[in-house]
C-alpha cells in the first residue's frame, strides 16, 4: 500500500468529549441484556441493602452509556462536538477492509450509579501497524476517562482497542 494513513498523527486525537446522565431504566434494561437478574439493578432497596446510595450499573455499562445519556442540553457549549473514533478510522475504512473489536478493558474507582452525571474525555493513545499473512492489521487504541461532573473525581477509565484488517 503506497498511501498509508499516518498513524503517528492519530495519537492524541480527541475521540470523546461528553457529559452523560446515568438513568435508572437504561441500567435495568442493560443488566437484563447481559443476563444479570440481580435485584440490585432493579430495586433501590436492594441496592441500599448492599451499601449503595443509588442503583449501581453493571461493569460494562460505561461502554454504552453515551448512547443513552449524552443529552444535548447537558453538553458544555465550549466543548467540541463528539468527533468519535470513526473520524480516525474513516481514512482506513476508505481503503476497504474490516473493523474488529480486538480488546477492551476497564479500570474502576467505583461503580457507575444511577443519578451520576459523568464527564468523559477520550483520546487515541496508541496506533500501530502489523503485517500478518499478507494482511495489514492496523491497531488503534483509545482511552476514555470518566469523571464525576460535580466533584471531578475519577470514576472509571475504559481502553478500547480496534483492529482494521485489509
Amino acid at each position: 500500500m503506497t498511501d498509508q494513513v499516518n498513524l503517528e498523527a492519530l495519537i492524541g486525537v480527541v475521540t470523546t468529549t461528553s457529559t452523560v446522565v446515568v438513568e435508572r431504566g437504561p441500567v435495568a434494561f442493560f443488566a437484563s441484556s447481559v443476563f444479570d437478574e440481580s435485584e440490585v439493578y432493579t430495586s433501590e432497596a436492594a441496592a441500599n441493602l448492599q451499601g449503595f446510595d443509588a442503583i449501581p450499573a453493571p461493569p460494562t455499562f460505561p461502554f454504552v452509556m453515551e448512547n443513552w445519556g449524552r443529552f444535548s442540553d447537558v453538553q458544555e457549549s465550549d466543548e467540541p462536538q463528539n468527533p468519535g473514533i470513526m473520524v480516525a478510522l474513516a481514512p482506513l475504512l476508505a481503503q476497504g477492509g474490516l473493523i474488529l473489536h480486538g480488546e477492551q478493558s476497564f479500570s474502576y474507582h467505583r461503580a457507575v450509579q444511577v443519578g451520576d452525571v459523568l464527564k468523559g474525555h477520550g483520546t487515541i493513545v496508541d496506533a500501530y501497524r502489523k503485517e500478518s499473512k499478507g494482511k495489514t492489521m492496523t491497531f488503534v487504541v483509545t482511552e476514555t476517562l470518566w469523571s464525576d461532573a460535580e466533584t471531578g473525581d475519577p470514576v472509571v477509565s475504559a481502553r478500547f482497542n480496534v483492529i482494521h484488517r485489509s
Binding site: V40, Q50, F52, S105, S107, Y108
Partner: peptide, 8 residues
C-alpha cells in the same frame, strides 16, 4: 457488585 477494580 461494586467490588470490581479492573476487567480486561
Amino acid at each position: 457488585v461494586g467490588n470490581v477494580a479492573e476487567f480486561s
